[in-house]
Design a binder for these strands. Structure first.
Length: 641
DNA sequence: ATCGGGGCCTAG
DNA sequence: TAAGCTAGGCCCCGAT
């Protein structure tokens, strides 16, 4: 399940506890490894605790698998691609494409050559990203997308290993119909001579995706919908990796003529689309305004038709998509997908907009590339940018957004921000770094402290930036959050303002406020500064997951955790030791529980919510459920409390 | 202070 | 050994 999670979901942390909190809303029974032997050698009570821990650790992955329908999805993938089930986790995308190629080749009596893979550093040219006209747009912007651009190019032009012609082939075959692609005049025979294997595979994948999407439309259960959405996405990725496979020089069967022709066609198509739209939707042709393409990436164009209302923009978008589709070979299709209104275009691959598919109600706030969707920022940055964008784009309350940003800066400088909001995570992806890096240097330091618990290659390293000598580099100031808490090391709040918060804030405010945006970073709210010592809030002491004593079932008083004071001596010293360890681990939970899981209200000293509408009630419910779960587990194994 | 490159992560 | 692709923003380090 760890592999599944890492493959299928982009998360900040992949620990069992964190993943379960995210998808299931429940957590592990934590037992530190150092006391397992003692628990086993202890008494009935301690062994019971150990048993619950083991059962819970076993049932959680099972619950994840069920809830995310992993087995069904993976089985389906295995069937579509024809690879053994375990390949889906043990191996990559290539084997899936190869497997499908073998199938189709066998049907046609073809043999696939066993090439020696060479690998090369040269890249071929990729897609076009249209130079954005950056700014804030308070008019509807229509988005037109080619659906499955690369697969549809390969199908439309019959691009395949089995259709590629070289000069010898053309001489030998004489009178033959072929096309010449925009890459290096590569030539491919037309479909009536021979239909390529790749186009056939792609058609299969796309029709399977069509079916998944149709099922998705019919489904009403939100969770099953999410799963079907995941399936159609998987099929889309599989279809797109066919193109990737042909361009993989380290792969089994690279063919740059195919991959480079695909991207070359793509570049021509996005350019042609821009031209067609801009040339047709003009005042000269009887439209109200001259349309203008303000941005586009690979397979999409963002069009400003100049109209100020959603209904007309959507009508024009649909019409334009059909108009352009007619200029291309089947099955290439340009689709009108959505309108952004308003739209904040910050840079290439960086934008935010309110997303509309029907003119009555917006669907969502869509953000691409900016801090809200990146995992290498701290939560503070993510949350403040997200909140400001919502205020600006949904509420259209720019001054409210300014106020919020100023308040956050003020809170940060006064050390009122929870440390869990300041944790930055980055993947440790290489063992040798040419320049020193904060996360790598920290991993080294942690390794020297305790090699067992330090992050290793591939792990995500969590760190905060702490106060240090003036002018010290970031890699000298990165520190393990747990170490910071244990040693009461002050946080460098100024670093968070200067290096984390200020630029992202300026980037979203400047297009609207202009130079005035800089006032966000200088003013009274930046004056009050307090010495920063780390605080922990919003914690979930995992031991406090029960409302009644785990031993005698009497209600727990506020100061008790897990067991009442009468039962506590039964667990004795072991229990204390575990609590100590738990307290040190609290920061892990702090990352998860900074908001009430029910009403999203801020949490402070405890998991309990501060909102009046959502008091202890939720925790009681959850605690009761946890006890019920544990009891059920025990009953299944003929235990009883 | 500026700039190029390494590193990370994302868009598509 | 086995490994889908390219484009590109942005942060940080380190050389100039």
């Amino acid at each position: 399940m760890l592999q599944v999670m890492q493959r299928d979901h982009k998360l900040r942390s992949y620990t069992l506890n964190s993943v379960c909190a995210h998808f299931l809303g429940e957590q592990k029974e934590e037992v530190h490894h150092s006391i397992i032997t003692d628990l086993q050698n202890g008494n009935d009570e301690s062994r019971r605790r150990l048993a619950i821990y083991c059962l819970k650790d076993a049932i959680l992955p099972q619950k994840l698998m069920d809830k995310l329908m992993c087995l069904i999805n993976y089985l389906e993938m295995a069937r579509v691609t024809g690879v053994p089930f375990n390949y889906l986790l043990a191996r990559g995308q290539q084997i899936k494409v190869i497997s499908q190629l073998y199938r189709k080749a066998f049907e046609q009596g073809l043999v696939i050559p066993a090439l020696k893979s060479e690998g090369s550093d040269d890249q071929f040219e990729g897609a076009t990203v249209i130079e954005p006209e950056r700014g804030f747009y308070n008019v509807p912007i229509a988005t037109l997308d080619f659906s499955s651009l690369y697969p549809s190019i390969m199908i439309a032009h019959n691009l395949c290993y089995t259709t590629l012609l070289d000069n010898k082939g053309i001489e030998k075959l004489g009178d033959i119909d072929y096309i010449t692609t925009p890459y290096n005049n590569a030539k491919f025979v037309k479909v009536h001579h021979r239909k390529g294997l790749l186009p056939t595979i792609l058609e299969d994948l796309l029709s399977a995706r069509k079916k998944a999407k149709a099922d998705l439309k019919k489904e009403t259960d939100p969770f099953k919908k999410a799963v079907l959405d995941g399936r159609q996405l998987a099929l889309k990725i599989s279809a797109n990796s066919v193109y990737g496979f042909t361009g993989a020089t380290v792969g089994k069967l690279p063919c740059i003529e195919i991959s480079a022709s695909v991207t070359a066609y793509g570049r021509q198509m996005i350019e042609k689309t821009k031209q067609e739209v801009e040339n047709h939707y003009t005042i000269a042709n009887g439209y109200q305004h001259d349309a203008h393409v303000i941005y586009g990436d690979t397979d999409s164009v963002m069009v400003k038709f100049g109209v100020d209302n959603l209904v007309d923009t959507m009508a024009l978008g649909r019409e334009a998509a059909d108009y352009v589709t007619k200029k291309f070979v089947k099955p290439i299709k340009l689709e009108f997908e959505k309108v952004y209104f308003p739209y904040l275009l910050i840079n290439k691959k960086r934008y935010a907009g309110l997303y509309w598919t029907n003119p009555d109600k917006w669907d969502k706030l869509d953000t691409k590339g900016i801090e809200t969707v990146r995992r290498d920022n701290c939560l503070l940055v993510q949350n403040v940018i997200e909140t400001c964008l919502r205020k600006m784009l949904i509420d259209r309350d720019v001054s409210g957004a300014e106020e919020y940003a100023k308040k956050t800066i003020s809170d940060l400088l006064q050390n009122k921000i929870d440390m869990s909001q300041l944790v930055i995570t980055k993947a440790l992806s290489k063992s040798d770094y040419s320049a020193k890096q904060p996360h790598h240097e920290l991993a080294e330091r942690m390794r020297k402290r305790d090699a067992g618990s330090a992050p290793t290659l591939g792990d995500r390293v969590a760190y905060v930036i702490v106060k240090s000598a003036k002018g010290a580099a970031a890699y000298e100031k990165s520190e393990d959050p747990i170490y910071v808490l244990e040693n009461n090391i002050p946080i460098d709040t100024n670093y968070y303002l200067e290096n984390q918060l200020s630029k992202p804030l300026l980037r979203i405010f400047e297009p609207i406020l202009g130079d005035k945006a800089h006032s966000l970073l200088a003013g009274d709210h930046t004056r009050v500064v307090q010495i920063a010592t780390p605080t922990i809030g919003g914690l979930m002491k995992f031991a406090v997951k029960t409302a009644t004593c785990l031993g005698c079932k009497t209600p727990l008083s506020k100061n008790d955790t897990a067991v009442c004071r009468h039962c506590k001596p039964k667990l004795g010293e072991l229990y204390q030791r575990q609590l100590d360890i738990v307290n040190k681990l609290e920061v892990h939970f702090a990352r998860l529980w900074t908001q009430c899981q029910r009403c999203q209200g801020s949490l402070h000293q405890d998991i309990l919510c501060s909102s009046r509408d959502c008091p202890i009630w939720y925790m009681r419910k959850k605690a009761q459920k946890d006890v019920q779960d544990a009891t059920n587990l025990l009953e299944r194994f003929n235990y009883a409390w």
